[in-house]
C-alpha cells in the first residue's frame, strides 16, 4: 500500500516534470505533445523526457546505493556521498574527462577505489570491519577527493572549468537520449541491490548474529559494497554528484517501508527526490537553469533532519 503511494507520487512528479519549464504545458497539451514526437512534441521528446528518465535512473541509483551502504555499515550517516565514494567517483570522472577517457569508466574506477581504500582502512582484526570508523575515515577521503577534483578543474580551460563546476553540483542540463542509453546499462547493477533486502535485514542485527544465522557476512558486505559503489559512481557519471539524494533516500524509504531497510522504497524515494528537485529547478527559475543538485540539497537537508528526528522519537 505504501509502495503504491510512493509509485503514485513518482508518477505525478514525472508528469509535472514533463510539464514544467520555460514553456508550461497543461495536461491536454502534454498529451498532444507526447502523441506527436516529430512535430509539437519535439521539445518534450528531445529534452524533457530524456531529462526525466536520466534523473529517475540516477536518483534510483543514488537511493539504492545510499540504503545499501547505510545498512552494510549500520550507520544512517554512512551514505556514499558522506563516506567519499561519490567524491572519489566524481574525481575519477573529472580525471577521465581531463584525459579524454570515458567518464563512466573514470567514475567506476573511482568508486571501486574508494570502497577498496575504506575496506582496507576499516578492517578490524577482531570484528571484521570497524563500522563506526568508516564514516570518519570516509569523510576524510571525501575531503581529499574534493580537493583533488578542484585541483584538476583549476588546470582546465575557463569554459570547461565552468561546465565542470556545474556538473559537480549535479545537473541534468546535459541529459539527452545518449545519457538515457548509458543509464539503462546501470539497470543490471541495480538488480542485486534490489534483491538484497533480506540480507540487509539480517545484517542490521549485528555481524555475529547474522553469521550465526548462516550468512557469509564478509563476502556479502564486500560484494554488495562494491556493487553499490558501481551504482553510485554510475549515477555520478550520469548527472554529477547530486548531494543528499543517497543520504536522505535511505531513511525516508525506511520510514515508508515501516522501519525496514527496503531497497525498493529507497530506490523509488531516490527517483522521486531527483524528479522533484528537477521540477523545482525549472519551475522556480526556468531561465537560470540552476543545477538540480542545488535543489536536492535544499530539500534533502530538511527532509533528512525531520526523518532523523522521527526515528529518534520512536
Amino acid at each position: 500500500m505504501r509502495f503504491l503511494g510512493l509509485l503514485l507520487l513518482l508518477l505525478v512528479l514525472a508528469v509535472l516534470s514533463l510539464s514544467a519549464g520555460r514553456v508550461w504545458l497543461g495536461p491536454i497539451a502534454l498529451f498532444d505533445a507526447l502523441m506527436d514526437p516529430e512535430g509539437a512534441g519535439r521539445m518534450i521528446w528531445n529534452l524533457r523526457l530524456p531529462r526525466l528518465l536520466v534523473g529517475m535512473i540516477a536518483g534510483a541509483g543514488f537511493g539504492l546505493a545510499g540504503l545499501t551502504f547505510q545498512t552494510l555499515l549500520r550507520n544512517p550517516l554512512a551514505s556514499p556521498d558522506v563516506i567519499g565514494v561519490t567524491q572519489v567517483a566524481a574525481f575519477g570522472a573529472v580525471a577521465a574527462l581531463f584525459l579524454g577517457a570515458p567518464v563512466v569508466l573514470g567514475a567506476w574506477a573511482g568508486g571501486l577505489a574508494a570502497v577498496a581504500v575504506l575496506g582496507w582502512l576499516a578492517a578490524h582484526p577482531r570484528h571484521g570491519i570497524e563500522t563506526r570508523a568508516v564514516v570518519l575515515q570516509g569523510l576524510a577521503l571525501a575531503i581529499f577527493a574534493a580537493a583533488g577534483t578542484e585541483a584538476l578543474i583549476l588546470r582546465m580551460g575557463d569554459s570547461s572549468a565552468g561546465m565542470a563546476m556545474t556538473w559537480l553540483s549535479g545537473t541534468l542540463n546535459a541529459a539527452g537520449w545518449a545519457e538515457v542509453r548509458r543509464g539503462i546499462w546501470l539497470a543490471p547493477l541495480l538488480i542485486p541491490l534490489l534483491l538484497a533486502g533480506r540480507v540487509l535485514d539480517r545484517l542490521e542485527l549485528g555481524d555475529d548474529l547474522a553469521r550465526a544465522l548462516g550468512l557469509r557476512v564478509g563476502l556479502l558486505r564486500a560484494g554488495l559494497g562494491l556493487i553499490a559503489a558501481l551504482v553510485a559512481a554510475g549515477s555520478v557519471a550520469l548527472c554529477g554528484p547530486m548531494g543528499f539524494v543517497a543520504l536522505a533516500a535511505g531513511p525516508v524509504g525506511r520510514l515508508v517501508a515501516g522501519g525496514r531497510p527496503s531497497p525498493l522504497a529507497a530506490m523509488l524515494t531516490g527517483a522521486a527526490f531527483v524528479t522533484l528537485a528537477d521540477v523545482l529547478a525549472r519551475a522556480l527559475a526556468p531561465a537560470a537553469l540552476l543545477p538540480t543538485g542545488l535543489y536536492t540539497a535544499l530539500i534533502g537537508a530538511p527532509v533528512l533532519i525531520l526523518t532523523v528526528r522521527r526515528m529518534a522519537r520512536r
Binding site: E204, G206, L209, L213, G214, G259, R260, M311, R314
Partner: peptide, 25 residues
C-alpha cells in the same frame, strides 16, 4: 554456513533490535 546455522544457534551479548522492528519480525 547455512548447514551450520541449522544445527547451532547463537545469541550474542547485548544484541540490539533496529527501531520499530516488531517481536514477530
Amino acid at each position: 554456513p547455512r548447514a551450520r546455522a541449522r544445527r547451532i544457534a547463537m545469541l550474542p551479548q547485548s544484541a540490539a533490535a533496529p527501531p520499530g522492528l516488531t517481536v514477530r519480525q
